[in-house]
Computed example of a mutant assay.
Amino acid sequence: MAEREIAIRGEMIRLGQLLKLADLVEVGADAKLLLDDGLVTVNGEVEQRRGRQLHRGDVVAVEDEAVRVV
Protein backbone atom coordinates (compact mmCIF):
# COMPACT_ATOMS: atom_id res chain seq x y z
CA MET A 1 0.00 0.00 0.00
CA ALA A 2 1.45 3.33 -1.04
CA GLU A 3 1.63 5.95 1.69
CA ARG A 4 1.47 9.69 1.13
CA GLU A 5 2.26 12.48 3.56
CA ILE A 6 -0.20 15.07 4.86
CA ALA A 7 1.28 18.10 6.60
CA ILE A 8 -0.52 19.67 9.55
CA ARG A 9 -0.01 23.14 11.00
CA GLY A 10 -0.44 22.57 14.72
CA GLU A 11 0.60 19.86 17.15
CA MET A 12 -2.35 17.59 16.38
CA ILE A 13 -5.37 17.08 14.13
CA ARG A 14 -8.56 15.12 14.76
CA LEU A 15 -9.19 12.01 12.67
CA GLY A 16 -12.36 13.35 11.02
CA GLN A 17 -10.51 16.51 9.97
CA LEU A 18 -7.59 14.52 8.57
CA LEU A 19 -9.86 12.28 6.52
CA LYS A 20 -11.32 15.40 4.85
CA LEU A 21 -7.94 17.14 4.49
CA ALA A 22 -6.46 14.05 2.80
CA ASP A 23 -9.49 13.77 0.47
CA LEU A 24 -10.31 10.32 1.85
CA VAL A 25 -13.89 11.53 2.43
CA GLU A 26 -15.90 14.47 1.13
CA VAL A 27 -17.90 15.31 4.26
CA GLY A 28 -17.92 14.42 7.93
CA ALA A 29 -20.94 12.15 7.51
CA ASP A 30 -18.87 9.96 5.15
CA ALA A 31 -16.15 9.74 7.79
CA LYS A 32 -18.67 8.59 10.39
CA LEU A 33 -19.89 5.81 8.09
CA LEU A 34 -16.34 4.56 7.40
CA LEU A 35 -15.50 4.63 11.10
CA ASP A 36 -18.73 2.87 12.09
CA ASP A 37 -18.00 0.12 9.53
CA GLY A 38 -14.48 -0.41 10.93
CA LEU A 39 -12.79 0.58 7.67
CA VAL A 40 -10.34 3.10 9.19
CA THR A 41 -7.12 2.13 10.94
CA VAL A 42 -4.68 4.30 12.88
CA ASN A 43 -1.20 2.83 13.20
CA GLY A 44 -2.58 -0.56 12.17
CA GLU A 45 -5.47 -0.69 14.67
CA VAL A 46 -9.15 -0.20 13.82
CA GLU A 47 -10.37 3.19 15.04
CA GLN A 48 -13.99 4.28 15.41
CA ARG A 49 -13.60 7.68 17.12
CA ARG A 50 -13.86 10.60 14.69
CA GLY A 51 -12.38 12.88 17.38
CA ARG A 52 -9.23 10.76 17.88
CA GLN A 53 -6.23 13.05 18.15
CA LEU A 54 -3.47 12.37 15.63
CA HIS A 55 0.11 13.57 15.86
CA ARG A 56 3.07 13.62 13.49
CA GLY A 57 4.11 10.10 12.56
CA ASP A 58 0.64 8.56 12.87
CA VAL A 59 -0.48 6.54 9.84
CA VAL A 60 -4.16 6.45 8.89
CA ALA A 61 -5.43 3.91 6.36
CA VAL A 62 -8.79 3.60 4.63
CA GLU A 63 -9.10 0.48 2.50
CA ASP A 64 -6.13 0.67 0.08
CA GLU A 65 -5.04 4.26 0.81
CA ALA A 66 -2.72 5.34 3.62
CA VAL A 67 -1.53 8.75 4.80
CA ARG A 68 1.15 9.70 7.31
CA VAL A 69 0.76 12.84 9.39
CA VAL A 70 3.84 15.08 9.08
Rank of each mutant, 00 (worst) to 15 (best):
M1S: 09
M1H: 08
A2W: 09
E3C: 11
E3F: 07
R4N: 10
E5H: 07
E5M: 05
E5P: 00
E5W: 05
I6V: 15
A7I: 08
A7V: 11
A7N: 09
I8C: 00
R9Y: 11
R9S: 15
R9F: 10
G10Q: 06
G10D: 04
G10K: 03
E11F: 06
E11L: 08
E11Q: 12
E11A: 11
E11I: 03
M12K: 08
M12L: 07
I13N: 03
I13F: 08
I13S: 03
R14C: 10
R14A: 13
R14W: 11
R14Y: 09
L15F: 07
L15Y: 04
L15I: 10
G16S: 15
G16F: 06
G16P: 02
Q17S: 13
Q17C: 10
L18D: 02
L18M: 13
L18F: 09
L18Y: 07
L19T: 01
L19C: 02
K20P: 02
L21N: 02
L21T: 07
L21W: 04
L21M: 10
A22I: 07
A22G: 06
D23L: 12
L24D: 00
L24Y: 05
V25L: 07
V25A: 02
V27D: 15
V27M: 15
V27I: 14
G28Q: 13
G28I: 15
G28N: 14
D30A: 11
A31L: 11
A31F: 11
A31K: 09
K32Q: 09
K32F: 08
K32V: 10
K32L: 09
L33F: 05
L33P: 00
L34I: 06
L34G: 01
L35F: 09
D36A: 14
D36N: 13
D36P: 01
D37Q: 13
D37E: 14
G38D: 05
G38F: 07
V40L: 01
V40G: 00
T41M: 01
T41K: 04
T41H: 02
N43Q: 04
G44V: 05
G44F: 08
V46E: 12
E47A: 03
E47C: 05
Q48Y: 07
Q48K: 14
Q48R: 15
Q48H: 13
Q48F: 10
R49F: 06
R49E: 06
R50H: 14
G51H: 08
G51W: 05
G51T: 12
G51Q: 12
R52Y: 06
R52C: 03
Q53G: 13
Q53P: 07
L54Y: 05
L54M: 10
H55I: 10
H55K: 15
H55C: 09
R56G: 06
G57F: 10
G57H: 12
D58W: 12
D58C: 10
V59S: 06
V59A: 08
V59G: 02
V60R: 00
V60N: 00
V60L: 04
A61C: 12
A61H: 05
A61T: 14
A61V: 08
V62W: 03
E63N: 12
E63K: 13
D64Q: 13
E65S: 11
E65K: 09
E65H: 09
A66R: 05
A66L: 05
A66K: 07
A66W: 02
A66F: 03
R68D: 03
R68N: 04
V69A: 06
V69R: 02
V70C: 04
